[in-house]
Amino acid sequence: MTLPADYHAHSNYSDGRPLPSMVAAAADAGLEAIGITDHCNVSSRELPQRAKRKLGFNLDQTYGRRREALRSLREQAPESNPITIYDAVELDYDPRDESEIERFLEDAAFDYTIGSVHVVDDANIFDREYFAAKSESELQDLVAEYYDKVVALIESELFDVVGHVDAIERTPELRGYTTQAHYERVAEALEFSPTVPEINAGRVLEEYGHFHPAPAFLEAIQGRDVQFVPGTDSHRPAELLDRLPVLEERFADLDLEPVTPFSE
């Protein structure tokens, strides 16, 4: 199967490489479209604000500037190798921030939105040192908190796509605590929501070695009327070029028809 689009890629407007190089990689890969979905957080709470300052993820302030850059790239695209470029976002979700998220998305009017959960217990889910100090019961509770937030994200219907639904599995200290009950809760929420999940290739060629959702999770979701958006979750041109073929193979093996994250 040849995928027409990659709907999850990052640029230098968050933690990726320069916009022109990411778009050029997508064109070189033969894609018809690429979605630039830089990280963003709009919470006014102190801890997210502190993390944003540390990481320099300021798309809430710079999306207008990025929009101009995307417009320029569209105009410069050669007729011999045209590519559609979507102006999108990957936005951090926490139930405490729903009103701020809603206001921001209404004002920003992106082509589409990905919502992701990156924090539990006010710690980034990829912070191995933080979780290494926790007991087994505490880790079980933190994984349950993660899936509570994922379900709340889906049920909020603020986003077109829910990103990497089991990203918590990337962290070895948190791996293995996801249960069948977690799978079923998320799958049920997806069945009754317009928010769609993605098949995310962000760690399939790295230490974690799986797509999101992982096979058992995917099986629970596929048992319901749910479709999937393709995303490489690439931050560098080489990642997009390396991950796209395995993502295409994944959709073909599963006999899945990819969908767009918006109404056409």
Rank of each mutant, 00 (worst) to 15 (best):
C40D: 04
L190R: 10
L59Y: 13
E155M: 00
H182W: 05
I101H: 00
D141E: 14
P194E: 12
G223P: 08
Q180E: 05
T84K: 13
S44E: 06
D242P: 03
I83W: 02
V196M: 14
E207T: 13
E46I: 06
A9I: 00
L153V: 01
F251A: 02
P172D: 00
P261G: 10
A77Q: 09
Y93P: 04
Y130H: 13
E219F: 14
E219W: 13
E145P: 04
E129C: 08
G16I: 04
L70Q: 01
A133G: 10
D28H: 04
A216Y: 12
H8V: 04
P245Q: 09
R243L: 08
E155N: 04
T195D: 06
E264W: 14
R224Y: 09
H212N: 14
S193P: 11
I114Q: 06
F262I: 04
N12H: 09
L142M: 12
E75G: 11
R203S: 15
L240W: 00
F251N: 04
A201C: 10
K52M: 13
R45D: 03
S14M: 09
G209I: 15
E68C: 13
E257G: 07
R17Q: 02
G223H: 08
N12P: 08
Y86D: 07
I101A: 07
T84H: 13
N41R: 09
S72W: 13
V259T: 14
Y146A: 07
V165T: 09
F228Q: 10
F192N: 15
G223R: 09
T179W: 08
D253V: 12
I101K: 02
R96H: 03
L244F: 06
L244W: 00
G202P: 05
V150C: 04
P48V: 08
Y93K: 01
S72G: 12
Q49A: 03
G115S: 02
Q222L: 15
T179P: 05
T232D: 02
I34D: 02
K149C: 09
P4W: 07
R203A: 15
Q227A: 14
Y63M: 10
P95A: 05
A220P: 08
R53A: 14
N200C: 13
E249C: 11
N12Y: 02
R224G: 09
V162F: 00
D97M: 09
R45V: 03
N41P: 03
Y177I: 03
N58V: 15
A238K: 10
A201N: 10
F131M: 06
T179I: 05
L254Q: 11
D87R: 09
F228G: 05
